[in-house]
């Protein structure tokens, strides 16, 4: 084995002075915080899409403001707001409603995935809205004609198709989510970027650590886009392609 490879293995391996386990742990944290953020984003996105489509004027205005503002400002700003402002706001609510003094702390993990969820929700809202527009009106009319109540139409006819049409767009949102999770490192959460940076600072070998971090991100993106492609193929089965 060449010397640099031996040195690299010692640095990034699983020995007593190796950083391998920590890097993998950090990669798991990245996946955990991204998927939590993505799930929360789906909730926000669905709510905002519903607000836009409901025809209710105030709900539509709130949803439009949310998607426009959030997609127009840097994710880093949203993270700063949630991380520094979130706990203050929670504390304020706490004092207001429970009359309690004292502080409500927001762990870095929660602050992180909430920030990612808020950002990602704005993008997912657009995806859901587009997917809803793609559902054929005739199917809804047909469902109504056979006497299905509204919620049953939503559950049996609309929701499955929206999910199906939204899948490719959601795949893109997931990638955004994954990349945004790197910015959570400013909150102190030890995810992949922060761990790479800590290792680089500690050993003065930024190059090896950042390159390893980048490679792990590539593994995560490749695996997850494979999963999305699989899901898409499954969702599209039984659908005639033009």
């Amino acid at each position: 084995m060449p010397a640099w490879l031996v040195a690299y293995w010692e640095l990034m391996g699983f020995g007593p002075r190796g950083w391998g386990a920590l890097m993998l742990q950090a990669a798991a944290m990245t996946v955990a915080v991204s998927s939590s953020g993505f799930a929360l984003g789906a909730l926000f996105g669905a709510l905002a899409a519903w607000g836009r489509l409901s025809g209710h004027r105030i709900a539509a205005a709130i949803a439009t403001t949310y998607t426009t503002v959030i997609r127009g400002i840097p994710e880093l700003l949203v993270i700063y707001l949630v991380f520094f402002g979130g706990a203050a706001a929670l504390g304020w609510f706490h004092r207001l409603f429970w009359g309690g003094e004292g502080f409500v702390s927001l762990p870095a993990f929660v602050a992180g995935f909430v920030a990612v969820g808020i950002s990602n929700g704005a993008y997912q809202a657009e995806v859901f809205r587009g997917a809803h527009a793609a559902v054929a009106r005739g199917e809804i009319e047909a469902a109504r004609a056979v006497g299905m109540p509204r919620w049953l139409i939503a559950r049996r006819i609309v929701a499955p198709q929206v999910l199906r049409f939204a899948l490719p767009g959601l795949g893109n949102c997931w990638q955004l989510c994954l990349k945004e999770s790197a910015l959570i490192s400013v909150t102190g959460l030890v995810e992949l970027l922060r761990q790479s940076f800590i290792g680089g600072r500690s050993t003065r070998d930024f190059f090896s650590f950042l390159l390893t971090g980048a490679a792990l991100y590539l593994v995560i993106t490749t695996l997850s886009s494979g999963l999305f492609a699989l899901a898409e193929r499954r969702a599209m089965r039984g659908l005639r392609r033009a």
Binding site: F84, A87, A88, G102, S105, L106, A108, V186, T187, G188
Partner: peptide, 15 residues
């Protein structure tokens, strides 16, 4: 561990 530039806001926020 907490990054320096957020260390005081983190204290006042009760982190």
């Amino acid at each position: 561990a907490q990054d320096w530039d957020g260390i005081i806001p983190g204290l006042t926020a009760g982190r």
